[in-house]
Amino acid sequence: MQTVTGLFDDYADARAAVTEMEQAGVPSENISIIANNVGGWHAGESHAVEGAGTGAAVGAVTGGTLGLLAGLGLMAIPGIGPVVAAGWLAATLAGAAAGAVSIGTVGGIIGGLIDAGVYEEDAHFYAEGIRRGGTLVIARLLDEPMAYRVQAILGRASVDPAERRANYEQTGWERFDDAGRPWTDGEIDAERHRLRPRP
């Protein structure tokens, strides 16, 4: 099984990529999406009841016949804060936080990503990207042709990981810290402005 990921600055682009992946034949249960929701931006899209604490129940996060995005639920991730999420990774994170399952020796979102087949260094980058206001789309694929197709879909609007990682490192960032303080809405807006291409 291959894992393909894309980090998006624009949530709408991530949603469009998920829809295109499903239309291309990727089963909803093989896709996950996790989007920062510190500002409550996506609360109206959630179809699950928000829980009170970290890793609260996400609801129908496994997609189904209506597609992955019909199962969006609200939860909190240590170091990131509130997110909307759907899919197998969201269910794993919610279950682990509730003590239902173990997701590796690292734990938290980093452990979940590593268990999903993401290299540890990349897992830290993706978690930090969500912390800074981004949206992660991740798919598990059985065959190589579909993996290439999904990479092309995600690559059209996702950030360049090497370029973005270098940008983070210029600010002194080294690794995601799940004990760190989640970013505020204002900090995320400032980061988006900082990263916006200059004319």
Rank of each mutant, 00 (worst) to 15 (best):
Q2M: 11
Q2F: 14
T3R: 08
T3C: 12
L7I: 08
F8L: 04
F8K: 04
D9R: 14
A12G: 02
V18F: 07
E22R: 05
G25K: 09
P27M: 07
P27D: 13
E29R: 13
I33R: 06
I33H: 04
I34R: 02
I34S: 01
I34V: 15
V38M: 06
V38I: 11
A43E: 15
A43K: 08
G44H: 09
E45H: 07
A48C: 01
A52T: 13
G53W: 14
G53D: 11
G63K: 00
G63I: 00
I80Y: 12
I80E: 07
V83Q: 01
A85G: 08
A86T: 05
W88G: 01
A90T: 08
L93C: 10
I109D: 01
G112E: 00
V118K: 05
Y119S: 05
I130R: 00
I130P: 00
T135Y: 07
V137D: 02
L142V: 13
L142M: 12
E144K: 12
A147Y: 04
Y148Q: 12
V150M: 05
V150K: 05
Q151F: 05
Q151H: 11
A152Y: 09
R156M: 05
V159H: 00
A162S: 07
R164Q: 15
Y168D: 06
Q170S: 14
Q170F: 02
W173G: 06
W173H: 09
D178S: 13
D178R: 13
R181Y: 01
W183L: 14
D185C: 04
D185E: 15
E187C: 02
E187N: 03
L195I: 06
